[in-house]
Design a protein around this nucleic acid. Structure first.
Lengths: 348, 348
DNA sequence: GTTAGCACTCAGAGAGTTAGAGTGCTAACG
DNA sequence: CGTTAGCACTCTAACTCTCTGAGTGCTAAC
C-alpha cells in the first residue's frame, strides 16, 4: 500500500464525514496537502476500491468509505484532535466532583457527550460488583408484611416488600437480623452465589421455615444490585440523522437489544463498532464509540456514543477517552465519600 | 339530517377505515345494506360535505371523513364490537392477577394494547395520591450518613441517602422519628405541601438545625411518589404508519409533549381526541383513545392508544374500555394486598 | 325523489429529455 | 514509468409531457 493511497483514503473519509456526499476525484485534488491531478487520484481511488476500502453507490458517483476503509482510517490514518484546555474545564464542571453520586456522574457524562457530539450517548451505571454488603434491615410494616433494606459499602440502597406466611415475633426478627449480619456483612455483592443462598435458606429454615422468603428477598435485592442499567440519552439525535433508518432507530430506542452485552464485551480503550458488523446491535449505518471506565482500578461500567457511521471520529474519540479517564478518576474512592465498611458502622 | 345520510356517513367511515383510500359513491352503492344508486349517494355525499362531515382531498377523488364526521360516527353511529370471551381470557392472562405489582400491571396493559391494536400504547402509572404515609424510618449507615425510608399505605416504598453536618445522638434520632410520626402519619401524599414542609423544617430547626436535611429528604421522597410517569410502548408502529408525518412522530416520541396533561384532563369513560384538535399533542392525523383507570374508586392513572385518525374505533374502543375496567378491578384492594394503614401497624 | 347518462376534472403513473457530476481509458508528457 | 490532460461514456435526479381512470356534478328522464 502506497503512502499516497493512504493519504487519499484519509482525505476521502475526511471529506465524506464533512459533506455527507460521495467524494469525487476532483474535490480531493483541490485539497491543500494533495498535489497530484484528479486523474492520478482517480487511478488510486480505483485501486482503493479494488482493495475494498472504498465503494461507489453507482457508476457515475464519487466514492464512499467501506467498513474496511473506516476501520483502517480509525486504526491507522486519522490524527485525533486535541481537546482544548478550556473545553476540558467545561467538561469537568459538567461532570461534578468527588462528592457527586456515581449515578449522577455517569448521567452527566451522557449529557456532556450528547451536547458535544450531537449524537446519542449511552452509559451504564457502575455496578457495585466488588462492594460489600454493609447493612441489612428488616422492618415490619403491616400484617405479615416486611420491608427488607439492603445497603452496600458503595452507598447503594435497595428495598423490597416481602410477605411472610406468619407474623414474626420480636425474637425471630432479632435472630434473623443477627444471623444475616453474621453471614453477609462484608460479603461482596458478586460473591452472593445461589449456592450460598441455598445454604442460608436451609439454615434459617431449620430455625423457622417462614423466614426463607426474607432470605430470598435479600438474594433478589443483591441481584438487582448486580444488574447493569443502560441509559441512552439524546436518542432524538439518531432520529434526525437521515443516514439511519428511522424504523431501526425507533426499535433500538425501545428495546436497546444487545447493546448491554456489546458494551460489556469491549476490551479496554476506546472501541469502535459498526452497526452492521455485529447482528446484536443492529442500526444499519450506525457506529458505536465506547469505552469502559474503572473504579478503583476495576472495570465498573461503560460510556460511549452512538451516531451514524459517518461521524467525526478524530474529534469524538478523544472526548470519549477523556470522559472515561475523568469518570474513572472521580470514582476512585479517596475513601472519604463512600459509606464506610461495616466495621466503621455506628449501630443505632 | 336524513336517516339515509347517516347510514351513508357511517358506511364512508367504515370503508375508509378499511381501505385507507378516499371512498367513492360507487363503492358505497355496492355495499349490502345500501339499496340506492351511486347517483343518489353522490347527492347525499355532496350534502354531507356541505354540512362538514366529509371532504374531498381533490376534486376528482372520493370522500374522506372530517374531524366532525369522525366525531359523529364515534358518538352516535358506530356499533362497538363485542370482545370474544376467549380474547378476554387471553388479556386477563397477559395482565396478571391481584398479586402482580401495579407497575407491571400497567406495563402489561400497554403491551397488550400494542399487540391487539397494532398502534402505540400509552399508560401512566398509578399515582398513590390518596394513600397516606404509614411509616418513616431514619437509619444511620455511616459517619453522618442516614438513609430515610418512606412507606405509604398503598405499599409504595422509597428511600434516599442523606448526609448531615453532624452525627445524631440516639435521643435526637428518637426525637426526630417521633416528631415525624406524629406529624406525618396519616397525611396523604398529595397533602404534603411546601408550606407544611416549611413549617416542619422550622420546627425541627428549633430543636436542632442539622435535622432539616432529613425533613427535606422526606419531602423529596414524597415528591417522587406524586410523580406521574408516562410510558409509551410500541411507538415504532406510529412510524410505519404512513398517514402520520414522520417528523411529528419523531418529535412526539422524543418529548411526549402535553400528553400527560391531556390524559390527566380526560373525563371518565373512553375519550377520543384528534391530534390536530388540541395544540398540545400535535401529531397531525393522529387520534388518542384513552381512559382513566381507578383504584379503590379513585382515579389513579390512564391508559390508551395512539394511532392514525383512520383507526378501527368500533374495535379499539371496547378493548380500551375492557382493559380500564380490568385494571381498575385488579387494583382494587381486597384490603388484603396492601400494606395497612398506620393504626394497624406493628411496631418492632 | 331517484336514476341513467354524460361531460368534466384531476392525481398519479409512465415515458422521454436534459443537465451535470464523475468515471475509465488513451495518448502525450517529462 | 509515473503523471497528466482530454474525451467519450455512464448514470442519477429533476423536469416535462401525456395518458389513464376513478370520481364528480349536472341534466333530463323515470
Amino acid at each position: 500500500m502506497d503512502e499516497r493511497k493512504l493519504k487519499i483514503l484519509a482525505a476521502v473519509v475526511d471529506e465524506y464525514v464533512r459533506t455527507g456526499e460521495p467524494v469525487g476525484s476532483k474535490s480531493i485534488s483541490k485539497l491543500e496537502n494533495i498535489n497530484v491531478s484528479s486523474a492520478t487520484i482517480r487511478n488510486d481511488m480505483a485501486a482503493l476500491e479494488q482493495l475494498g476500502y472504498l465503494e461507489q453507490p453507482h457508476t457515475s458517483a464519487g466514492r464512499v468509505p467501506t467498513f474496511k476503509g473506516y476501520r483502517l482510517y480509525i486504526d491507522e490514518l486519522m490524527t485525533p484532535h486535541d481537546i482544548p484546555e478550556e473545553e476540558k474545564k467545561l467538561i469537568d464542571e459538567m461532570l461534578g466532583d468527588k462528592d457527586t453520586p456515581e449515578e449522577l456522574l455517569v448521567q452527566n457524562a451522557a449529557t456532556a457527550l450528547t451536547e458535544i457530539t450531537h449524537c446519542a450517548a449511552v452509559v451504564t451505571n457502575a455496578v457495585p460488583r466488588f462492594s460489600v454488603i454493609s447493612k441489612v434491615e428488616v422492618i415490619p410494616t403491616g400484617k405479615r408484611l416486611y420491608v427488607i433494606l439492603l445497603i452496600t459499602s458503595s452507598g447503594n440502597i435497595k428495598n423490597k416488600a416481602c410477605r411472610l406466611e406468619f407474623d414474626l415475633s420480636h425474637e425471630q426478627l432479632d435472630f434473623f437480623t443477627h444471623y444475616i449480619e453474621e453471614n453477609l456483612s462484608g460479603v461482596s455483592v458478586d460473591e452472593l452465589s445461589e449456592e450460598m443462598m441455598d445454604n442460608m435458606v436451609a439454615a434459617v429454615s431449620a430455625y423457622m421455615v417462614s423466614l426463607s422468603p426474607l432470605v430470598k428477598g435479600i438474594c433478589e435485592l443483591s441481584e438487582d444490585l448486580r444488574q447493569q442499567e443502560l441509559t441512552v440519552s439524546g436518542s432524538e439525535k439518531l432520529l434526525s440523522c437521515d443516514e439511519l433508518d428511522k424504523m431501526e432507530v425507533v426499535k433500538f430506542i425501545e428495546y436497546k437489544d444487545g447493546l448491554s452485552e456489546l458494551l460489556e464485551n469491549a476490551f479496554s480503550g476506546v472501541q469502535v463498532k459498526f452497526g452492521a458488523e455485529n447482528d446484536s446491535f443492529a442500526i444499519g449505518n450506525s457506529s458505536l464509540i465506547a469505552s469502559k471506565y474503572r473504579k478503583d482500578g476495576k472495570e465498573a461500567g461503560s460510556l460511549g456514543v452512538i451516531g451514524p457511521m459517518r461521524v467525526d471520529y478524530k474529534k469524538i474519540i478523544p472526548y470519549v477517552e477523556y470522559l472515561t479517564q475523568r469518570i474513572s478518576s472521580l470514582m476512585d474512592s479517596g475513601d472519604d465519600d463512600i459509606i464506610n465498611a461495616p466495621d466503621n458502622l455506628q449501630e443505632p
